[in-house]
């Protein structure tokens, strides 16, 4: 595991807004079939860091490597071309459009004449939804008419449909009930088994301990440290988040 090329490496990433260093020389990495949790308080810089990977922000410095090669990511379109898909905390859905239009937004299926093929998109949406969320039925309603869980499954379907290799999930369970949270947890296990690398941003230490292989903790824009989940306790992680202190390790 250690000597294989990581799926993603973000090296020495920097981004400042005005005078504030939102991300200050942070390096993290992610392997295929691995879930890495990103923890930290609000404003610790975890979302900002990950938005440089998804193309929403452009970095001030540092480099991103995908499968060992330097990747030029200047906008969301670039990120998608590296099979990097993002599920945003806000879900980033156009509320006035239906599920199919949202799923294919920016990547519409076209007829041979080059026009938008809504029927084909609805058919594909029905297919993927029958796998992800069999209860989903409202294919022609605008997504504003859907429940929180249904909206979440549209956002997830969008990321999964296009053969993501690298998946970024920003607080995927924040707005969900227990049953839907369980659904997301199962999905993460399934995607992991398919060899997809996942960055999971969360507030919930328990979530991270259950779902992740490694966890990176950020505080005030800096990386506190990255630990294997089995090597640390909840309290260690809490100390990293609150005090910015690495767990004291036995010298090996």
């Amino acid at each position: 595991m250690e000597n294989q090329t990581p799926l993603v490496e973000m090296r020495d990433m920097q981004l400042a807004f005005g005078g504030i260093k939102a991300v200050d020389h942070v390096s993290i990495d992610l392997n295929a079939g691995e879930v890495v949790g990103l923890l930290g308080h609000n404003g610790a810089g975890k979302s900002t860091l990950i938005k440089m990977l998804s193309g929403a922000y452009q970095s001030d410095g540092g480099e991103i490597l995908v499968s060992g090669e330097v990747a030029e990511i200047n906008n969301p379109r670039d990120a998608r071309s590296y099979n990097i898909e993002t599920i945003y905390q806000t879900l980033a859905l156009a509320d006035n459009l239906d599920a199919g239009s949202n799923l294919f937004l920016g990547r519409e299926l076209l007829t041979p004449m080059g026009f938008v093929d809504d029927d084909a998109m609805e058919a594909e949406t029905r297919k993927i939804m029958s796998r992800l969320n069999p209860n989903f039925q409202k294919f022609s309603a605008p997504v504003s008419a859907l429940s929180g869980g249904q909206r979440q499954s549209v956002a997830i379907a969008r990321a999964v449909y296009f053969n993501a290799k690298i998946l970024i999930m920003d607080e995927p369970t924040a707005a969900l009930g227990p049953q839907e949270t369980q659904m997301v947890a199962e999905l993460i296990q399934k995607l992991k088994a398919d060899g997809i690398g996942i960055f999971l941003i969360s507030h919930d230490i328990q979530d991270v301990m259950d779902l992740c292989d490694r966890v990176s903790v950020m505080k005030n824009g800096k990386l506190v440290g990255t630990e294997r989940v089995e090597d640390v306790t909840d309290d260690d992680i809490l100390a990293m988040i609150i005090l910015g202190k690495n767990p004291t390790k036995e010298p090996s």
């Binding site: 969301p76 998608r80 980033a92 156009a94 509320d95 006035n96 239009s101 937004l105 920016g106 026009f115």
Partner: peptide, 25 residues
Amino acid sequence: AKRTKFGRYVFATGGNPEAAELSGI
């Protein structure tokens, strides 16, 4: 409005400009 990418993007941007941008529009 109904059958071109341009029309679709007009309505998507109207519904949620941020989402449209994050979709690469």
